[in-house]
Amino acid sequence: MHVMRGIESTHDGFVASSRKRFVKKDPSHKNLDVLQQEIENGSRLYLARGITLLESTKPSDKKVGQEVLTNLLPKTGNCIRIGITGVPGAGKSTFIEAFGLMLAEMGHKVAVLAIDPSSTLTGGSILGDKTRMEELARHKNAFIRPSPSAGTLGGVHKKSRETMLLCEAAGYDVILIETVGVGQGETIVRGMVDYFLLLVLTGAGDELQGMKKGIMELTDGVVVHKNDGANKPLVKKTVREYTRIMHMLQPASPEWTSRVQPVSSIEKTGLEAVWETVLEFEKEMKEKNHWDTRRQHQTRDWFHSMIRDHLIDSFFSESGRKTQVKALEEELLDGHLTVTGAIDRLFSS
């Protein structure tokens, strides 16, 4: 794929290669007003720069990023936030590209936050160098931002919420958040979005053997993917099976029955039906006053989560704490100390 070098490029490689150049070019961040204005005007280049500041571990960068975000908060919230997860091989990226392209062609501005697994050695993005969603990345109404999970539970970067808000301030009215699809990460994403979508493949019975019931209970909609070619008869059967299952579960959203829909991203079928369901969901939730209530609860939970993160960071930043923890770990593993005893010693010192 040819990587665009102009101001509107959002290709993963361009964003990554531009970070150091941005910071080096303006180390003092004196052009904060320009940055804020350009983001508000919809510049994808400056949006990428703003996100980089939010994700930075450098205090001066973080301060500027927070100031810009605070100033832009009144511009946020006017969007639909959709979380997308699925079992391995379900085709999340393929679906997101097809779905995003359809919305972009309709005139919507679509931001995709693709949360990549982090390297256990570097903390960087394993998938960041791979070319994904090429066609969507080139569309003028789309913005794709890969982000390393940096060790956060479930692969969701702790700054993903702030990234989402900055995208909204830039005028993106549909935010798609792709999860890595493992473990408790779905619960975190559920706490960030309005509508949570699960992608599955045919053969519900076998697939459910390895799928936690809890994940099913988080979903507002299920897409049975790859409804094309010889798969169609089996997809039809799978839709019936999942529909039966979803009716037996507690609804993820009040007064809403999760829909199960067949989709082929290759043949571009079923995508419009999924979008119509999302809009129906939005209308019902707003009419019944659940929409704003959920978002308020999410903001509160985010606040408490950040308090916990800050306390942990502060604890380990204290002089000698890491050495003390390591010494207690060795006593625990040697069988000379109970966990409760270790905690008592840790916090009594």
Rank of each mutant, 00 (worst) to 15 (best):
G91H: 13
K92R: 10
K92S: 14
K92D: 01
S93T: 15
S93K: 09
S93D: 04
F95G: 05
I96S: 04
I96K: 05
E97N: 02
A98Q: 09
F99E: 01
G100E: 05
G100T: 14
L101V: 10
M102S: 10
M102Q: 14
L103Y: 04
L103T: 02
A104V: 09
A104E: 12
M106A: 12
G107C: 13
G107A: 06
K109W: 06
K109L: 13
V110E: 09
V110T: 05
V110A: 09
A111N: 05
V112W: 05
V112C: 06
V112T: 06
V112Y: 01
V112E: 01
L113R: 04
A114K: 14
D116A: 06
D116R: 00
P117M: 10
P117V: 11
P117N: 05
P117C: 13
P117Y: 14
P117H: 03
S118D: 10
S118G: 15
S118P: 08
S119F: 03
T120L: 13
L121S: 13
G123K: 11
G124P: 04
G124T: 11
S125L: 02
S125W: 00
I126P: 07
L127W: 05
L127V: 06
L127D: 07
L127T: 06
G128T: 03
G128L: 02
D129C: 00
D129I: 00
D129K: 04
K130W: 04
T131R: 08
T131M: 14
T131D: 13
R132M: 09
M133K: 01
E134I: 08
E134N: 11
E135R: 10
E135D: 12
L136I: 14
A137L: 07
A137Q: 15
A137R: 08
R138K: 14
R138S: 15
H139V: 08
H139Y: 04
K140H: 13
N141Q: 14
A142E: 06
A142W: 04
F143C: 11
R145D: 08
P146A: 04
S147C: 02
S147F: 01
P148I: 10
S149Q: 01
A150Q: 15
L153I: 12
L153R: 15
G154P: 01
G155M: 03
G155T: 10
G155F: 00
G155L: 10
G155H: 07
V156R: 02
V156S: 03
V156A: 11
K158T: 13
K158W: 03
K158P: 03
S160R: 02
R161L: 06
R161I: 06
R161S: 10
E162A: 13
E162C: 05
E162H: 14
T163E: 06
M164P: 01
M164D: 02
L165G: 01
L165F: 13
L165M: 15
L165A: 08
L165C: 05
L166I: 14
C167M: 10
C167W: 05
E168L: 12
A169K: 08
A170K: 08
A170F: 11
G171L: 09
Y172H: 14
D173I: 12
D173H: 07
V174F: 14
I175M: 08
I175A: 03
I177D: 00
E178H: 10
E178F: 12
G181H: 10
V182N: 09
G183I: 02
G183F: 10
G183H: 15
